[in-house]
């Protein structure tokens, strides 16, 4: 089973959670339309320690170097980056739209805050997605309980702080339920 935490050695720094990193790319043409969202998701790797994270991350392209319509999904092991997953069904996400040129720095700041447990919302964080698009890039942070207002507000405040967003930056909360409709 690929979705179990990898082993770590005693001299590594264990993370609170193990994570899996996924990649997806929208395929143009007929084949792309035939493939489900699930079939487009490719597992890149898993990690359970800080050292394993850097080992994986340093071999990856930065988000700004990716082609348009490519996404990275970083989720806790055991949670698939899909609305349909049990952990996401009642959840939602903060959506941050970024003008071109900011995404690599913001993505790194976000995942370091997530791995380091800076959000302080217990089990609530599910994962993060970065989406490279034509005119802008989008970063999303998914959490379990969309109806928990104090948690979603706390996540928003931490997100704004760790991304170093200007007060005018637009942040929007979407429940997965709304996205499905």
């Amino acid at each position: 089973e690929v979705l179990v935490a990898p082993d770590i050695s005693p001299d590594e720094h264990k993370l609170q959670y193990a994570y899996a990193l996924w990649y997806s790319k929208r395929n143009p043409g007929k084949l792309g339309a035939l493939l489900s969202y699930d079939q487009n998701l490719k597992l890149i790797g898993r990690f359970a320690s800080v050292e394993q994270f850097w080992g994986l991350y340093s071999h990856l392209s930065r988000p700004s170097e990716l082609n348009t319509h490519t996404d990275f999904h970083l989720f806790k092991i055991g949670i698939k980056p899909m609305w349909e997953d049990e952990a996401n069904q009642r959840g939602g996400k903060w959506v941050v739209r970024l003008r071109k040129g900011l995404v690599s720095r913001c993505w790194e700041n976000l995942i370091l805050a997530m791995l380091g447990e800076q959000f302080m919302v217990g089990e609530e964080i599910c994962g993060a997605v970065v989406s490279i698009r034509f005119q802008e890039d989008i970063i999303c942070l998914w959490n379990k309980t969309a109806s928990d207002l104090s948690t979603t507000q706390r996540i928003r405040d931490t997100l704004r702080r760790v991304l170093h967003l200007p007060p005018t930056a637009l942040m929007e909360y979407k429940t997965h339920n709304d996205s499905l409709k």
Binding site: H13, Q16, W54, G116
Partner: peptide
């Protein structure tokens, strides 16, 4: 139990440790 919390600077410091390569 206790949550494992790491500051950004601490994580960045481990970036170049031999185990991270």
């Amino acid at each position: 139990g206790t949550r494992i919390v790491y500051e950004r600077a601490f994580l960045m410091n481990l970036r170049n440790s031999p185990i991270s390569q």
